[in-house]
Structure formats: structure tokens, C-alpha cells
């Protein structure tokens, strides 16, 4: 009898986790219903989509789209506020934003691709960093949802980085030079076609790894937190102090991971651009940074 209840509860907890993490056609909002003070699901409007080259493009709002729009709105408001109050000495929010932007420009961009290219690509790197970090953090706010825990979202982000990396490489090296860099120097001629294929696969696999890494990291932490909370309902209230303590620990870890993953995404995008842009005159700088060539 008891085992059966636990099994049903396990099913319910599993459904809850799935429901919480997957995209949906409604958002949960607090205080929207008198019966459920804790919250209530509100349906999202359906918008007409269209066909583009045989592919159906959906424009309807979903939970994650709303969260992304919210992130974009928050960022616009932040930038507007910072821009308005900009004095000679930044204070408050402007100070924080300046510190982050300087960090991205000087430590990430200049470290990986040299001072000249860094100025060019810093705006994109700042945009990705702030957007990803905001999306990640919105997922940690009650009633929020992690848009970066959706494979479609991270795939799109990685695809944009992919386009920028190829654009930067072709612009710097030319089409021929770009193809030539795919064969590492000093490779015997019979190995060259294989190395070309291996490196060509790398061109696609690197953004793919960016996409999977962000998605998996954002999803995993949330699954762990929700499972810990779910254990209370499966094993009984006696376990609550332990799971809540672990849950809080995971939550704090998630705060760190939210920043870390945004940083890693930005850093690796910058690194891949840097390998193409700074690679052929790397000797001019000290070591062209972190040497990570994967």
C-alpha cells in the first residue's frame, strides 16, 4: 500500500519536473486567482505563423519566448538607465556594467584575439554574455523559466556564434586562406584530405558543443533542485530538512553556474574567432592566450 503511494507520487514528481522544465503555451503568474494564491497558469495568445520555403514558422508566444523577451526588455532598461546616468565616474549600476564590459573586452576579447579585432567583436560578445546571463538568472527567480534550458534557444545562440566565427575567418583570411587553414601546417600530403575532413567536422562540432554545453548545464541543475524538492513528497516530510539544505546549496551553485556558463559561452566564441583572426600572426603577441584549440 505504502509502496504504491510512493510510486504514484514518484510519477507525479516526474511529471512536475518535466512540466516545469519544458516549453509550454502558458506562464505561471502569482496572485492571478483568488483560489490559488500561490499562482495560476495563464494561457498565452496565439499568433498567426507563416510558411517560409516549405518550413512552418511559428510566431505564437511560448513560456520560453516570454522569458527571452523579458530578458531583452530588462537588458534594454538596464542599458537605458546606465546610458542616462553616465558621468565621468560611473557609480551604482553603471559601475557594475562597466566592470563587466571591461572584463569582456580586456580579459576575454583582447586575450584571445589581440587588441585590434577585440574592438570589433566586443559588442557581440557583450550582447551574448548579458543575454545568456539574464536568461539563466530569470530561470532562478520564482515563476521564471530557464529559456537557456531549451535546446532550440541554445542552438540558435550557437548558430549565431557559428555564423560570426565563419564570417570573421573568411574576412580575415579570404575564402582560399580560410580553406587552407583547415589543413594544419606540416602534415604529409597523403594525410591532408583526412585532416581536412577532421578539421571540417571540427568547424561544425565546436558550435554544436557550445549549444549542448549551455543547454545541459542549465537543465541539469534545475532537474537536481526539483528532484530534491520532490523527494519530500515521495519519502515524507521527515526528509525535508536534508533535501531543503541540499536544494539551497544547489541553488547557490546554480547562481554560480549561471554566470560561469555565460562566461564560457562568451569565452569560447571569442577563442574560436581568435584562432582564426589572430592565428596567423600569433607570434606578435605573447602567447595567443589560453592555447585551448578544441
Amino acid at each position: 500500500m505504502h509502496a504504491e503511494v510512493a510510486e504514484n507520487m514518484g510519477q507525479a514528481v516526474g511529471d512536475m519536473i518535466l512540466h516545469h522544465l519544458t516549453n509550454g503555451r502558458q506562464v505561471e503568474l502569482p496572485f492571478t486567482s483568488l483560489d490559488h494564491l500561490a499562482g495560476h497558469a495563464v494561457g498565452l495568445p496565439e499568433l498567426p505563423g507563416f510558411e517560409l520555403g516549405g518550413v512552418r514558422i511559428e510566431l505564437s508566444l511560448t513560456k520560453h519566448v516570454v522569458m527571452m523577451l523579458l530578458a531583452a526588455l530588462l537588458l534594454l532598461m538596464m542599458v537605458w538607465r546606465v546610458r542616462r546616468g553616465l558621468g565621468l565616474v560611473p557609480r551604482g549600476l553603471a559601475n557594475v556594467v562597466e566592470a563587466v564590459v571591461l572584463f569582456i573586452r580586456d580579459d576575454i576579447a583582447k586575450g584571445t584575439m589581440g587588441p585590434k579585432a577585440a574592438e570589433q567583436y566586443t559588442p557581440y560578445l557583450c550582447t551574448t554574455f548579458f543575454f545568456i546571463v539574464t536568461c539563466n538568472l530569470i530561470g532562478l527567480v520564482p515563476y521564471g523559466s530557464t529559456a537557456t534550458g531549451n535546446l532550440g534557444v541554445t542552438a540558435t545562440l550557437a548558430f549565431m556564434s557559428f555564423l560570426l566565427i565563419q564570417y570573421a575567418g573568411i574576412r580575415e583570411l579570404g575564402v582560399f586562406g580560410y580553406l587552407k587553414h583547415l589543413i594544419p601546417p606540416g602534415v604529409p600530403f597523403w594525410l591532408a584530405p583526412i585532416m581536412f575532413l577532421v578539421e571540417l567536422l571540427g568547424v561544425f562540432a565546436k558550435p554544436f558543443a557550445l549549444c549542448i554545453r549551455l543547454f545541459a548545464n542549465m537543465l541539469a541543475g534545475h532537474v537536481v533542485i526539483l528532484s530534491l524538492i520532490g523527494l519530500i513528497f515521495i519519502l515524507g516530510w521527515i526528509i525535508a530538512p536534508v533535501t531543503v539544505a541540499f536544494g539551497v546549496f544547489m541553488y547557490v551553485l546554480e547562481l554560480f553556474v549561471a554566470l560561469l556558463q555565460a562566461y564560457i559561452f562568451t569565452m569560447l566564441t571569442s577563442l574560436f574567432i581568435g584562432l582564426l583572426v589572430a592565428g596567423h600572426h600569433a607570434d606578435e603577441h605573447e602567447e595567443p592566450s589560453h592555447g585551448a584549440k578544441h
Binding site: 576575454i108 586575450g111 560561469l260 562566461y263 569560447l268 589560453h290 585551448a292 578544441h294
Partner: peptide, 8 residues
């Protein structure tokens, strides 16, 4: 920078 070196 140390984190950046470890990250990959």
C-alpha cells in the same frame, strides 16, 4: 584569466 585557462 585562471578560470579562462581552465574552462576548455
Amino acid at each position: 584569466v585562471p578560470l579562462g585557462k581552465v574552462a576548455p
